[in-house]
């Protein structure tokens, strides 16, 4: 049994390392598929393993940065990362996170920070869930009516209106295939940044849908570009939390090793999945995240952890299924295609 336990030099505790690999793996799968960091998934997992919570934040952040890097490299091969869009948005994200953090400190002085943050979070998650499913329903009904745009059937098309704003400089984003005022992505990323800083999360959960619905980037490019953003903010987060001593490097490395494999599965699965498939699964993940936060607000901690972990497990299996079925089909077709 000793073999399965690994000594964490800074925390000074033994941790069941296959558990860490498994967390890394599942978050890698889900993160690669949805383009989010997944800090909200890692913490309850670490908690159950008996990992010292004092080190959870930094460990989480560093792991997410490394994992997003692996996924970004893979997405980049698919041409899913719009670096130009990513860099433009980075400016807004940074300023936004800073503003958000200041806002939290202001609320802290007023002494109402805890529940305000949590309820704002819940509201936004509810909004995103609603948007995802409303959009899906609209797209389905449009399809029935036979209305199809140039990219197939679409539901919410707010970005088309937003693209009409033409305050210079106008920019063309090649990968995402959109042309709009540079201020649109900056403004959107500023808003998502403020929220991310305010809520203390990486922001992939908010940025991915914002990219889809407000900027009008295709789902796959949204996932890839968002991962690029998550990577940079994750590295930043890892640095600041390490400065506060909140990191256990050994755990980061163990989790990353699991994440490397998971990220491949999650990322390659986007190839075999329709944009709407990704969005609906994303909506379900967000919904579960929301419920778990509400449960936590009322101190049903165990129920919240169970909900999150089982959601992760199921979504993870679903994505693995997509990936392996798709890959098997492709390989079969390839074999048949060859004359020998």
């Amino acid at each position: 049994m000793e073999f399965f336990y690994m000594y964490m030099p800074i925390a000074g505790v033994d941790v069941f390392w296959p558990g860490l690999v498994l967390i890394g793996f599942s978050v890698g799968v889900i993160g690669g598929f949805f383009g989010m960091g997944g800090a909200w998934m890692v913490t309850p997992g670490l908690n159950i393993l008996g990992f010292p919570m004092a080190f959870a934040i930094g460990t989480d952040m560093a792991h997410i940065a490394g994992k997003s890097m692996i996924s970004t490299i893979r997405h980049s091969k698919f041409g899913n990362v719009d670096y130009k869009l990513g860099l433009v948005m980075l400016a807004g994200t940074m300023v936004g996170i800073e503003i958000g953090a200041q806002l939290v400190m202001y609320l802290e002085r007023l002494g109402i920070v805890g529940s305000v943050v949590r309820w704002v979070y819940v509201c936004f998650l509810a909004l995103i869930t609603f948007m995802v499913f409303y959009d899906y329903a609209k797209a389905v009904s449009n399809k029935k009516k036979g209305i199809t745009g140039e990219h197939g059937t679409e539901g919410i098309t707010w970005y088309k209106t937003l693209h009409k704003i033409n305050i210079p400089p106008m920019m063309h984003f090649h990968r995402a295939g959109i042309t709009c005022s540079a201020w649109l992505p900056i403004l959107v990323s500023l808003l998502t940044g403020i929220l991310a800083g305010f809520l203390g999360i990486g922001g992939g959960l908010l940025r991915m849908p914002a990219l889809v619905y407000l900027i009008g980037s295709p789902t796959h490019v949204s996932v890839g570009t968002d991962l690029f953003e998550v990577m940079i903010s994750g590295l930043y987060g890892a640095f600041t939390y390490s400065m506060k001593g909140r990191i256990e490097l050994v755990a980061v490395f163990v989790m990353l090793t699991g994440a490397a494999i998971g990220a491949q599965i999650g990322t390659v699965a986007t190839k075999y999945s329709k944009g709407y498939g990704i969005r609906v699964a994303f909506g379900i993940a967000v919904l579960c995240c929301m419920i778990s936060i509400i449960l936590k607000q009322y101190h049903f901690n165990a129920a919240s952890a169970v909900l999150i972990l089982s959601t992760i497990g199921l979504i993870c299996l679903y994505i693995c299924k997509i990936m392996f079925q798709g890959a098997a089909k492709e390989l079969r077709e390839k074999k048949q295609g060859q004359p020998s």
Binding site: A11, V13, G50, P52, M53, A54, F55, A56
Partner: peptide, 13 residues
């Protein structure tokens, strides 16, 4: 100086 006995690392914050 770390207070080992009073600082429960498994707690949040």
């Amino acid at each position: 100086v770390m207070n080992v006995s009073k600082q429960d690392l498994s707690k949040k914050k």
